[in-house]
């Protein structure tokens, strides 16, 4: 079994109102914060032990379902 840790974030060109709200909150708490972007973290456990096959599968999963390529970028790391 291999585990993929997937991060999905809004593309830089897309405004992130949640991130902006959190950024303003942190600034109002006087922390030296430049900016905040909010994304999603997902753990996917695969029943596939071959790393290169797992990578291929994860790219497909990420493109098809876990992210929307119109507005989001994804990255993942394999573990195990």
């Amino acid at each position: 079994m291999l585990k993929a840790n997937v991060t999905v974030t809004l593309k830089k060109s897309i405004l992130d109102p949640q991130g902006s709200a959190v950024e303003r909150a942190l600034k109002s708490m006087k922390y030296p914060v430049e900016s905040v972007r909010i994304g999603k973290f997902m753990e996917v456990v695969l029943s596939e032990n071959d790393r290169s096959k797992a990578e291929e599968i994860m790219h497909e999963i990420c493109r098809k379902l876990l992210s929307n390529p119109v507005i989001e970028d994804y990255s993942f790391e394999l573990e195990g």
Binding site: L10, A21, V70
Partner: peptide, 11 residues
């Protein structure tokens, strides 16, 4: 359809 629907700007 093209484009996407995001969280409302005012949250």
């Amino acid at each position: 359809l093209p484009g996407a629907l995001l969280r409302n700007a005012g949250l």
